[in-house]
């Protein structure tokens, strides 16, 4: 193996090991440590100068106490469940909103498509924070939505939307919509138009052709879109902090507060480890879907 190749491989490799892999090992280690009022605020710390005895006492002091704590405290498992629920519901809403948009784009004429595509991608380049923030003025009690509904006469007292889970759904659907639209669009765009004509030729109505042909064939795009929304929504911190209320429980927010407000690093680490374990299932399913897609394309 020549030196150049070694350098080429080793540089990004070592970078990722030092700044990605090692930090995770540290997270796991601290998750097994105990809280202490000290700097750093946890024990044990590895004392290499004590030699073998130091290492032994270090490992001897690690335990799963934080995890039993997580399991026993209703706050945590409620936060996990509520995160899962919020992520799942928002994913379904995003799908219902995103599919018609993707379908409309796929049916648009060739000269329109690049523009529509850019219109979908453009929000992705603008600040996530600002996009979430823009909803405060719309959803608040004096906000534009309430003003509009009052003006229409549909309601006579303002609805409380901001600082509820409903506002979180809106925020997630809004910010993650492009992640849903794009994979569905690319699946629909690949769809051979003669398949729909063939279905109609064989006696399907348009609605039947959509249901029997278009929808099943766009399934990979739908699955990819759902995972692309569900996975980041599960660990979302910004949206529940800005749009959600004190009753909105999401695990990303709990972790952030545990760390910065309570300074309980071991528990925060344990929360992170459990969140990772929960995420592994959808991530593996997502990878499998992508793999299947790649194979189907070959």
């Amino acid at each position: 193996m020549n030196l150049r190749r070694l350098v080429l491989i080793a540089t990004p490799y070592l970078w990722l090991v030092v700044f990605f892999l090692v930090p995770f090992v540290i997270v796991f280690k601290i998750a097994l440590s105990d809280y202490a009022i000290s700097i750093p605020p946890y024990t044990p710390t590895l004392d290499l100068s004590a030699g073998w005895e130091g290492i032994k006492s270090f490992f001897g002091a690690l335990d799963f106490e934080n995890f039993t704590f997580l399991a026993s405290d209703a706050l945590y498992w409620k936060a996990y469940l509520s995160s899962l629920q919020i992520a799942a519901i928002s994913t379904v809403i995003t799908l219902l909103v995103g599919y018609p948009i993707a379908y409309g784009m796929a049916q648009a004429s060739d000269e329109w498509r690049p523009t529509l595509m850019m219109l979908v991608i453009l929000p992705f380049w603008t600040s996530f924070l600002i996009r979430v923030y823009s909803w405060i003025g719309i959803l608040s009690n004096e906000g534009f939505l309430n003003q509009f509904l009052l003006w229409l006469g549909i309601i006579d007292t303002p609805l409380t939307i901001l600082n509820t889970n409903a506002a979180v759904y809106v925020g997630i659907v809004y910010t993650y919509l492009p992640f849903m639209v794009l994979p569905i669009y690319s699946a629909l765009e690949k769809l051979d138009g003669s398949l729909i004509e063939a279905a109609e030729d064989l006696g399907c109505s348009r609605a039947q052709a959509f249901w029997l042909i278009t929808l099943p064939l766009s399934k990979p795009g739908v699955i990819a879109g759902c995972f692309l929304v569900f996975i980041p929504a599960l660990g979302e911190f910004v949206i529940p902090s800005i749009l959600g209320g004190s009753s909105t429980l999401m695990i990303g927010k709990v972790l952030f507060e545990e760390f910065f407000s309570n300074r309980d690093w071991p528990v925060a680490s344990a929360v992170a480890v459990v969140l990772l374990l929960i995420l592994i299932v959808p991530i593996i399913l997502f990878q499998r879907n992508e793999q299947k897609q790649r194979e189907a394309n070959q």
């Binding site: 909103v97 018609p100 049916q107 648009a108 219109l119 909803w135 719309i138 690949k190 004509e197």
Partner: peptide, 28 residues
Amino acid sequence: MNRRFSWFNATSLTLGFVFLYLPMIILI
């Protein structure tokens, strides 16, 4: 994909893009 302009598509695209852009326009 065969292209057929329909009111359904036009409506869903319009509503979709209003949803995506209205909050930012209000902000501006």
